[in-house]
Amino acid sequence: MCASVRWQEATQAVTLMDNWHQRWLTGVELLQDINENKHLLPTGFEGLDRLLGGGLRQGQLTEIAGPSSSGKTQVCLYSASHIADKHLGVVMFLDTCNSFSPNRIACIVNQLPASLVKDAQERRLERIMSNILCQSIFDIFALLDVLHQLELTLKHKVNIGGGKICLLIIDSISSLIGPTLGGKSSEGRFLMVSAGIVLKRLANDYNLSVLVTNHMVSGEGGLLKPALGESWKTIPHIRLVISRDQGSNFCTATILKHTLMASGHTSKIVIHN
């Protein structure tokens, strides 16, 4: 991609940031907004929903971090399937590492509670799949461009896929941002913060729930910590880390940051491959 195109897409992100001038809100207005507009979207994982206070909240950015094979993608796919099945809205899935699998969606749908005959089950799968929109993106500039187009679509109240988008998933955000970081240049950090602010703006202004995944890196003393550093960790409203129990389908989800819950709380969830 040429430098002029990259600069244009980065400029679009800055424009979105500059246009976000939230007015001051009273506590009464914030409470009313939460109660009337910012609904919860259940993921379908009972333990995870309990840990989140009911599910993925619209208007907020939730991050799930974890090492490879910990179940991050499975949480994304299951959440997309469950929300699409419950007629809660359209799910937009931005796939950055070829993680989206229609076959895995079909397996998940077969696991969802139902007492349907085969034909009805097939129609259910078709309906769910039609409410999940997937697009592959492989660099931060493509992400910024997609977010710019999404902003225009939402601003003009254009339904995508026959419904209103309620959930935006990026699996994984770190695979897009990570390659831009490092070195003496501040461009990568600028692009990372820009993307984060735009995601939060879209969530707040259009009642989206945004779910992103992040990988883990070695921190002080060799302990694992979410990637992308100090500048990123302030951006998500909610941060969870999940780890898989060795040799089993049981995972432990732990709160690192939450707007309502205390950090350190944990819950067990079962993730089927």
Results as ranks from 00 to 15, higher is better:
1 M>I: 11
2 C>Y: 12
3 A>S: 14
3 A>Q: 14
10 A>D: 05
10 A>N: 05
10 A>M: 07
12 Q>G: 10
15 T>G: 13
15 T>A: 14
17 M>S: 12
21 H>R: 15
27 G>I: 03
28 V>A: 15
29 E>A: 12
29 E>W: 08
31 L>V: 11
34 I>M: 14
35 N>S: 14
37 N>K: 13
40 L>G: 03
47 G>L: 05
47 G>A: 01
50 R>H: 12
51 L>V: 03
51 L>G: 04
52 L>N: 02
53 G>N: 04
63 E>Y: 00
63 E>F: 01
68 S>C: 12
71 G>D: 06
73 T>E: 10
76 C>I: 01
78 Y>S: 05
84 A>H: 01
90 V>G: 06
94 L>I: 02
97 C>G: 14
97 C>K: 15
98 N>E: 13
98 N>D: 14
99 S>P: 08
100 F>G: 05
102 P>Q: 06
105 I>P: 02
107 C>M: 12
109 V>C: 10
112 L>A: 00
113 P>Q: 02
114 A>K: 15
122 E>L: 14
125 L>Y: 10
126 E>A: 08
127 R>L: 07
129 M>H: 03
137 I>V: 12
139 D>C: 10
140 I>C: 07
140 I>W: 05
145 D>P: 05
146 V>L: 13
147 L>S: 06
147 L>N: 06
149 Q>G: 09
150 L>Y: 03
152 L>S: 12
156 H>N: 13
156 H>C: 11
157 K>R: 12
159 N>V: 09
161 G>E: 08
164 K>E: 08
165 I>G: 04
166 C>L: 04
166 C>V: 01
167 L>K: 03
168 L>E: 00
168 L>T: 01
169 I>P: 01
169 I>K: 00
171 D>A: 07
171 D>R: 08
171 D>K: 05
173 I>E: 00
175 S>A: 13
176 L>E: 01
177 I>F: 03
182 G>L: 10
184 K>Y: 14
184 K>H: 14
190 F>P: 08
194 S>M: 12
195 A>T: 02
197 I>V: 15
199 L>C: 01
201 R>S: 09
203 A>V: 03
211 L>M: 07
216 M>A: 04
222 G>N: 09
222 G>Y: 12
224 L>Q: 08
225 K>A: 09
225 K>I: 06
226 P>R: 02
226 P>M: 02
228 L>C: 01
231 S>T: 06
233 K>T: 00
240 L>H: 05
248 S>L: 05
254 T>P: 09
256 L>S: 10
256 L>W: 13
258 H>L: 05
258 H>G: 03
265 H>A: 15
266 T>L: 11
270 V>D: 12
